[in-house]
Design a protein around this nucleic acid. Structure first.
Lengths: 220, 220
DNA sequence: GAAAACCGAACGTACGTCCGATCGACAAAA
DNA sequence: TTTTGTCGATCGGACGTACGTTCGGTTTTC
């Protein structure tokens, strides 16, 4: 079940493939925007069809159910996000810089794909059973990336900290996944500025925290 | 429009009123649990009726549409949250302690009302137009509470900070509103522990941050 | 001319809401 | 004390609509 093409595999006979893929991407993009705007449940296939300029029946040439459409959107978005972050992380050794890079990459990806990331953040539970678990793998990968960075930072700079690293990691995820509710890069704040502040706050937060090995509120 | 009783006004003729209110609370509680579990769109009135032990038509004796039902849930939950926080804040002068108190109150309220807060966090946009704006007033109140605390903290302890206070406040809201995705107080971590770490991280985050007036990463 | 892309129209279902009737408690009238 | 009347609470059943999906056929592409 749920073995429909996800678009991440390479494939030959490129000419026919090209136009099919282009059209699919096109439709998925329209659907993504619509779902981000009105929510998955209220984004009827009829509306998706209208938005994409296809007939209702024509949609089913590209995926065989509404849920698989959502799955495709989430799977592709999440795969691309994980990939982008991994690429940007490549070759960076300092864990503190890794954190900055990962947060910056996430915020930048959000700024460039607001609708898609909103759908990923907000419509997680609209996927049921097998589809939910399949994207869950990617989410765990993403969590693992951030958690590993947090571990390296704390091991290196606050090894005796009593800080709960799961809580710390999740608190940052909360900040990042909530972006879609308030942050609009078109309204003044640049992604770089915002990501820098988020990463800095987090770093000082976990390093300066009252964790048993020291105490630091050196303000005045 | 949307002037249906919200349950916050006092009222006489208590005996008849009592049983009506009790039943309403009962139904709303069932509905809240169901919506938290399956989402607003998939929580059909038929399911709500079954869950609450009422007939489908009987539901409409207590609210005149599905949306008003959701509005009641959100309005009551949010009102109670704002009230609780304001009460706990009363008489506390030190802004740093105010922050701890507010975060602790929020997490405690979440732990005691997980379904209701999930519905408030997740189904915000399921309310349209007038209803959305009416709860928006409460959300702005709540933002104002936290923002004022952040302002007092920064004015007192880092007045020259270049920190974007809106971003700082929203990053904390993100952490708090994302709780429903991962935090289960029944699984080990106490609300006190979690809220303490969240508040401490945030405090050290905004006070220790590289903001032009100082720099502090005093770890080894 | 085969295969892929696309479509109009329909099917069955599930939804939110409403109508008319019944039930039950309780107070005024007998 | 019984009867009657009122009104809130509750219900079965229906109405109209919108949904996801499918079928059979047409158009387009190479």
């Amino acid at each position: 079940m749920f073995d429909q093409e996800t678009g991440t595999g390479a494939r030959g006979k490129s000419d026919l493939r090209r136009s099919y893929d282009d059209r699919l991407n096109n439709i998925l993009e329209s659907a993504t925007g619509l779902i981000a705007r009105v929510g998955y449940a209220k984004a009827s296939m009829r509306l998706v069809a209208k938005e994409a300029g296809v007939s209702l029946a024509g949609l089913y040439h590209y995926f065989d159910s509404k849920e698989k459409m959502l799955f495709l959107i989430q799977f592709r978005t999440f795969s691309a996000l994980v990939l982008t972050v991994q690429e940007k992380l490549y070759g960076i050794a300092d864990p503190v810089e890794q954190l900055h890079v990962m947060v910056r990459a996430h915020v930048a990806y959000f700024a460039a794909n607001m609708a898609a990331l909103k759908v990923c953040s907000h419509e997680l539970e609209s996927l049921i059973n097998s589809a939910y678990e399949e994207t869950g793998e990617l989410r765990r990968d993403y969590y693992g990336l951030l958690r590993a960075i947090v571990d390296r930072i704390l091991d290196a700079r606050a090894p005796n900290s009593k800080l709960d690293r799961y809580v710390a990691t999740m608190s940052l995820f909360g900040t990042l996944n909530w972006l879609y509710r308030w942050y609009d890069p078109k309204r003044g704040r640049s992604p770089t500025t915002v990501s820098h502040q988020i990463a800095s706050q987090f770093l000082n937060g976990v390093l300066g925290v009252d964790n048993g090995s020291k105490q630091s509120l050196n303000t005045e």
